[in-house]
Design a protein around this nucleic acid. Structure first.
Lengths: 206, 206
DNA sequence: ATGAAACTGAACCGATCAGTTTATAGTCGC
DNA sequence: GCGACTATAAACTGATCGGTTCAGTTTCAT
């Protein structure tokens, strides 16, 4: 998987070093903002070495961005006890969702994917699948089981899952992504999450 | 308001021309992507003239971006007959919301505000206020009146307004902003809007 | 120890870009 | 017609950046 890019990539001792430096610089400076010299410096590697591994800046960026998209899918996976009542589960998942949204890492990768989705169309797609779509898949799965248990009554599971996640981002997400605020009080979080749970249960509770 | 920036900006015959050219180029190419030469050409003006009006590229951009933020507030204002039943009103407002979100103009300005909110922190704030906050204010106002009429029962009007708007963006917004899709069938739109109205009424209906 | 492959550092190339300058020319009131 | 103002095209400056080249050094398997 990591060498999926048409065998462009040579082997060598410092390969991982280059990738690590690129990751760091790209994630903080974006594609245009990052200079290859900076990346080489951050990686502790000469520019010639860098260019012996990757044919150009574009491909280096894509390799980094794609691996970061994958990372978010794995990082956000977390085992949960699904035997509690739906209200409790949802409140938990809501808090977790907000944690992810407001995390430094998610903000950065989202910002980069939005910013570069015109220059790198596959990138937006990749992020959509490993992010929102994966989140929906997991929640949808839970909703299905909870419904089978008779705790909820849902017709369109994907819609319901998306709705809940969206409800958890109320006001917080725009503020984060537009740089208005970066941190939020527990009261703010509770207001949104509890509001989401109340609304969800009013609609789909039995 | 338009000359709020420390009186840096001169007046003159071609002032509006410059602004118009800058608007066009910045909105399609972003801040970094736009070259001053391109802007001067698009404005039909010499670079020297451009620089006689604006001291540098940054200020020119900020003037454009701020005026575009204001524009979105005015463009999205539209008189509506608020005497119909809430379900109908909400369905209408939901469709309108989706129209705005999927419009070329909103996408561009949102993308630019997100992308440049680190370089221009005031920009993110400005967009947040003329966009999400203004949308909330209007809907919240309606909800208040509708509640007074006994059609709805709401405790936190701002929260309820944000929730409804957020519900209307379900799945559509991420796909738009990540460049996964640009157009949506009426069926997709109806599914989301009707889902939002159903949920909202289940929670706040009397 | 040797030889090939990997790596270094620095110089270099061509291009782009923000911003300045200069020399020229149109346009106004008076 | 004259002087003050405004505009223009084009050349120029200084800096940055992506990418290349190359002479010399390090690493490492044999």
């Amino acid at each position: 998987m990591s060498t999926a890019t048409k065998a462009v990539i040579r082997t060598g001792r410092k390969f991982e070093q280059v990738l690590q430096g690129a990751r760091q610089v790209f994630m903080t400076d974006g594609y245009e903002g990052a200079s290859v010299d900076d990346i080489a410096k951050a990686a502790g590697v000469s520019k010639a070495t860098l260019y012996s591994y990757f044919p150009d800046k574009r491909l280096l960026f894509m390799e980094v961005a794609r691996s970061e998209c994958d990372r978010q899918a794995y990082e956000t996976a977390e085992p949960t006890d699904f035997n509690a009542p739906p209200r409790d589960i949802l409140r938990l998942l809501g808090r977790k969702t907000l944690e992810i949204i407001t995390s430094e890492f998610s903000q950065r990768i989202f910002r980069i994917c939005v910013g570069e989705s015109e220059r790198f169309p596959e990138l937006g797609r990749e992020f959509y699948q490993t992010g929102p779509l994966e989140g929906r898949r997991r929640l949808s799965e839970y909703l299905r089981r909870s419904c089978a248990r008779g705790e909820l009554q849902i017709e369109d599971f994907d819609l319901a899952a998306d709705q809940f996640i969206e409800l958890c981002r109320v006001d917080i997400f725009p503020r984060v992504i537009l740089g208005v605020d970066t941190e939020f009080s527990q009261a703010e979080i509770d207001r949104v999450v509890d509001g989401a749970v109340d609304m969800f249960m009013a609609r789909y509770g039995t």
